[in-house]
Design a protein around this nucleic acid. Structure first.
Length: 538
RNA sequence: GAGAUCAUAGCUCAGUCGGCAGAGCGUCUGAUUGUGGAUCAGAAGGUCGCGGGUUCGAGCCCCGCUGGUCUCCCCA
């Protein structure tokens, strides 16, 4: 007989009972919350027409869309998120506005799996369609904080920004339209790489990303002492091998090797100090490399150093407070930025009115978000430990619904349920014992003659709403008790020949290590008494 | 999509110079035909990820592939 390997497709996971219970706990909490805020459930298919999804997310996201289909139906795709399907539903149905809907369902992305990154994962979305005002944005943000609070998060950082403010920032920089995405991407890294890191990123915009990426990796190996001079030269030669224009390889490689000669290979004794020194050396080496490359590429594709200085100057203002908005307004002096700032302060007012504590969120105009469809308010929550990225993200997307023929403003968010579970696990936010037992009572089966009595007892307990497992063979009683202990049940109920003859049931209290016989008619109450005592006793 | 690194029993891993495939935990059986997670005794469990190469001989060396993990990219 040929067997099939029990393997999973890449990036896919099974959720065994313990993991599934944790996910359900998160999902149940969010669903209850969403309903408390008056949101209605919606379900859409996993499979959409490719045309529904394509062209909505931007080029980076688009290549991650799972294409599916059967031969002549190959124009199908698995949904990438729950927002675009919502837009399709809105336009394809007659729904009164505002439409407040929630949807908790898996989505698929063809990513390279990593910690906290799966190809199939569950999103919990809440969105409001048809409400143009900032009250709607604040409503969504209130749910975000309430959700994170309800799940037990404490020091999270919910960052708030506005796309129109960002547009003003772009104009302030005064660079060509084509350079803007690179600029946004660079400043988005502020939290991760710091001010000098952003400088490097800004000065890298317009340079070939793949070349820089491979250079960074080669330099990392070199300064950490993982590569000798020959290896470094080989890595770098490979990195510049495909670079455009062709002259880069000839002129850039020697210059870069030269520049790098100043930086030491290998670290000291103390691992942490060595790591810090290596990071510093790598940054300096990359700065030298970028200097060298900027001389080789056309100036009109690069961000001028004067602009970089101006932007970095501006980024230093970032203090997360409300006063920041006024400061930004005067500095940017731009009509669209002014709209973004006004919207942000309206949102803040509404959050205050809703009683959301000010320490739950902060303004961060260096927070960008990658998806193309956002138009106004944007926000996301990032956790630092574990370093898993964002656990929640969302914003306003006033132009997306028009793409399906029925324009309407909309705002919403999605929680990354699987990342929430991962983070909560790492932070110990799940109660240790909660829900671990699948059943409170195990009904033992003594022999074939008494089995029907056991089956009947289990049925009675279940009718009373008590979680009951019927043992399914007549093993030795010791085995059945050991099994019940493994299952974390609280009670074993036994009807053997003696009990059957006497019309009784032996109820063994596993916690108290004691047992007593009760009348068969009083068995349910007897179990309740033990479970009740256990529960109140802690 | 780029790079690094790893892959030995169900799990965690050891395996020296290229020379008989190992340990702990778990599982199963028994000690024990009506009662506690222990203990003791025993057993099962392997294509050393897959395919090729070098060699008298490969878990170990070389090449390719697949998969996991990590760093980028991007995101939840």
């Amino acid at each position: 007989m040929s067997t099939t390997e029990p393997r999973l497709a890449r990036g896919m996971r099974d959720l065994l009972p313990d993991a599934m219970r944790r996910r359900q706990r998160v999902v149940d909490t969010l669903r209850r919350l969403f309903e408390t805020y008056g949101f209605e459930p919606l379900e859409t298919p996993a499979v959409e027409l490719s045309t529904t999804l394509l062209g909505k997310y931007g080029p980076d996201a688009e290549r991650l869309i799972y294409r599916a289909g059967l031969g002549d139906e190959a124009d199908l795709a698995l949904r990438y998120d729950l927002t675009v399907p919502l837009a399709r539903v809105w336009s394809g149905n007659d729904i009164p506005r505002p439409f407040r809907r929630y949807q908790i369902a898996p989505v698929w992305r063809g990513e390279r799996p990593q910690r906290g990154r799966y190809r199939e994962f569950v999103q919990a979305d809440v969105d409001i369609v048809g409400a143009p005002g900032m009250l709607a944005d604040a409503e969504i943000l209130t749910i975000v904080t309430a959700g994170l609070d309800a799940l037990g998060f404490t020091g999270y950082r919910l960052k708030l920004n506005n796309r129109r403010l960002l547009n003003g920032l772009g104009r302030y920089a005064g660079v060509p339209e084509a350079v803007l995405p690179g600029l946004y991407r660079a400043i988005d890294k502020l939290d991760k790489v710091g001010l000098e890191g952003v400088r490097l990123e800004l000065r890298s915009v317009g340079l070939p990303g793949e070349l820089l990426n491979r250079q960074r990796q080669a330099v990392g190996r070199w300064v950490r002492g993982q590569a000798d001079r020959d290896r470094l030269a080989r890595d770098l030669a490979a990195a510049v091998g495909d670079a455009e224009p062709a002259g880069v390889a000839e002129r850039g490689l020697p210059a870069f090797l030269d520049a790098l000669a100043d930086f030491p290979n290998g670290g000291g004794d103390d691992a942490r100090a060595a790591e810090a020194a290596a990071a510093e050396a790598a940054a300096a080496a990359m700065t030298a490399s970028v200097d060298c490359l900027r001389g080789l590429y056309p100036v009109d594709r690069l961000i001028p150093d004067a602009v970089t200085d101006r932007l970095l100057d501006l980024l230093q203002l970032r203090d997360g407070s409300r006063a920041l908005l006024a400061a930004l307004g005067t500095r940017l002096d731009d009509a669209e930025a002014a709209v973004g700032i006004a919207q942000l302060s309206e949102v803040l007012d509404a959050l205050d009115a809703a009683g959301v504590p000010a320490d739950r969120y902060e303004i961060d105009f260096a927070m960008v978000r990658g998806l193309d469809y956002y138009t106004g308010t944007i926000f996301e929550t990032v956790v630092e430990t574990p370093p898993i990225g964002s656990i929640q993200g969302g914003g306003r997307y006033d132009n997306l619904l028009a793409r399906f023929g029925k324009p309407a403003p909309a705002v919403g968010t999605s929680f990354g349920v699987d990342r929430l579970v991962d983070v909560m696990e790492a932070l110990g936010l799940f109660p240790a014992e909660a829900g671990a037992a699948a059943a409170d009572v195990v009904v033992a089966v003594f022999d074939a003659v008494t089995a029907p009595g056991a089956v009947g007892l289990a049925a009675d307990l279940r009718r009373a709403g008590i979680r009951t497992e019927l043992y399914l063979s007549a093993d030795r009683l010791g085995d059945q008790i050991r099994y019940a202990l493994e299952r974390r049940a609280s009670v074993v109920a036994v009807i053997g020949p003696d009990e059957a003859a006497a019309g009784t049931v032996v109820l063994r209290d596993l916690g108290a290590r004691s047992q007593a016989a009760v009348d068969r008619a009083g068995a349910v109450d007897g179990v309740r008494a033990i479970l009740g005592a256990r529960r109140s006793g802690g």
